[in-house]
Design a protein around this nucleic acid. Structure first.
Lengths: 102, 102, 102, 102
DNA sequence: CAAGAATTATGAACCC
DNA sequence: GGGTTCATAATTCTTG
């Protein structure tokens, strides 16, 4: 791995990761910065996990309402894609199928 | 296709969505229900994409601050995994304990 | 978890798993049996991993030859499915799309 | 669609498979190549499915012999994971050591 | 048949 | 920017 940080910085990071320094020196600054970064990322990832759970719930609701979840997923994926992309992909698939005599 | 809904249900939906059923109401109900489901899923997925972008930004900020992003990702994965694995190991331990009738 | 084995058996398994017994008693028989099972499964899984690697190589070859790997995967998945299933799925997708006015 | 092949290449394939190109030979070559690729992948996937069936049989045998299949799966997963995780931990350790210039 | 695990595919991120 | 590796998402399969 090619480190993109200086030896000093590296030392600071390692200190921060291993909680060896607790003073409000420059080391502490780096450690605090790291802690802030980690906290924010973990917070956002938690929110993201919550959203994923919500989405899962809606699919479950759809299933209960009698909709086919697999087709529903296809539908939503389709809406995300550019029309031209979908068309070109289908065209290429047809080409391959014809090539195999399908 | 292996339907995840019963044949009756499938017929029902198909009837509703293709305007075969007698009342105009039930058609509209199913269509509205589908629209609601699709809208909510797409809304939540948009929020999720925004969160992913925010997380990406924080990683970029961390990189600018001199932190090694790869190490950072490993660190966060490790913090997440540790919890999961502690739970997994406890499950396995329980299994063994049960095997011994404890 | 509902154990499907007797307490004696459970004890034997646990012993085997933890290598506490080494004699050719009935414990040893169970341990040998377990070892045989684990060995065979791991052997087959290794073969399966090798096959997966071979398949990956062919996809890489296809890509080098100018084929679109994603479409290729779709094609092969399509050939696995029953024709009637594919048709019914596409029909249902069309129904949903019409329902949304797409 | 985001092509994973260049536009030139794509045009080439498309030409070949749709018989737009001048010679009948190159068409056949591309079609044969595709057929070869699909055949080999399907063959290997069939072997892989057979191996999966064999593995399933062994688990069934283990169950008949009184072993708990779930525990067995956990055991084998654990044996697999341990190797992978030892490697992962060593990687992370190396990163930290490099951070310290060791 | 519903739920959960396990496998597999897709998409993103990093390096060259 | 292209390939490769890794994370996440989805489908499939098994079990209760």
């Amino acid at each position: 791995m090619i480190m993109q940080i200086s030896a000093d910085e590296a030392s600071h990071i390692h200190d921060a990761l291993t909680n060896r320094r607790r003073t409000a020196t420059s080391d502490g600054v780096a450690a605090d910065r790291l802690r802030s970064i980690v906290d924010r990322i973990e917070r956002l990832e938690e929110e993201r996990a919550n959203l994923a759970a919500d989405i899962k719930d809606i699919y479950a609701e759809a299933k209960s309402a009698g909709f086919d979840v697999k087709v529903l997923r296809q539908l939503i994926a389709l809406r995300k894609k550019d029309d031209a992309e979908v068309a070109e992909m289908e065209t290429l698939l047809d080409v391959y199928k014809r090539s195999l005599g399908m």
